[in-house]
């Protein structure tokens, strides 16, 4: 049953106008794209506060490098590769959405979400291993920062998965319609989450 019939009809607007008003954005920039960039900018400052505090405390407590040895390096590296792969699929999905090839969009969205879930799975595995070894957020400064930073990052991945789910739900109705641009926007958000892990991984696992 083709569900795209009950999508809201877009009323006819005069030249260059939308429901909210006249489009005065500079060329090639849409409201959604500018919005996601501003959101990423404020998120970067959030992670800057987190990373700044961690680097600061890491310089005060050199003994944290011993505790960093308990981290499972293999799982961390695997997670980095998983995120790279999911980012690759995400870019393919936004390319396919641009080319209005709905089957590819569905395929790559599912693959991206699968990789995101795999990342969370590996993270959950790591957490349970650490809990088993008696390393909880309360057992020392390094562990509280570790669980805080990876926890906030995992929450951002969850948020991304929710957005991808909404996109997939729309893709399953047959055609992306005017949601076409939103795949690229979610792609930008997903790449931002990837960049955060690119910094988080060496900071936690690899620092001497």
């Amino acid at each position: 049953m083709d569900k795209s019939a009950n999508l809201p009809l877009t009323p006819h607007y005069p030249e260059n106008e939308g429901p909210e008003g006249y489009n005065s954005a500079p060329a090639g920039l849409t409201a959604g794209r500018l919005g996601i960039w501003a959101l990423i900018a404020s998120e970067i400052v959030l992670f800057a506060g987190l990373f700044g505090s961690f680097i600061l405390m890491r310089m005060i407590h050199p003994e944290w490098s011993e505790e960093a040895r308990h981290l499972n390096l293999v799982a961390g590296t695997l997670n980095s590769l998983v995120l790279l792969v999911s980012n690759f699929f995400m870019m393919k999905a936004s390319g396919a959405a641009g080319a209005e090839n709905n089957d590819n969009v569905k395929k790559y969205l599912v693959l991206t979400m699968a990789m995101g879930v795999l990342f969370l799975g590996v993270k959950a595995f790591e957490y349970t291993a650490e809990f088993a070894h008696g390393e909880f957020p309360t057992s020392g400064g390094f562990w509280s920062f570790y669980f805080l930073m990876t926890g906030i990052h995992a929450t951002h991945i969850l948020g991304g998965l929710v957005a991808l789910g909404l996109l997939l739900n729309r893709a399953l109705t047959g055609s992306m319609g005017n949601w076409k641009g939103r795949v690229a926007i979610t792609g930008i958000y997903w790449s931002f989450v990837e960049v955060v892990w690119i910094f988080l991984f060496p900071m936690l696992y690899l620092l001497a």
Binding site: G28, R33, L34, A41, I188
Partner: peptide, 15 residues
């Protein structure tokens, strides 16, 4: 990945 190259000058400043 974020094809920043095709973004406007405004986005550079915001980033």
């Amino acid at each position: 990945y974020m094809d920043l190259k095709s973004e406007g000058k405004l986005i550079y400043w915001i980033m």
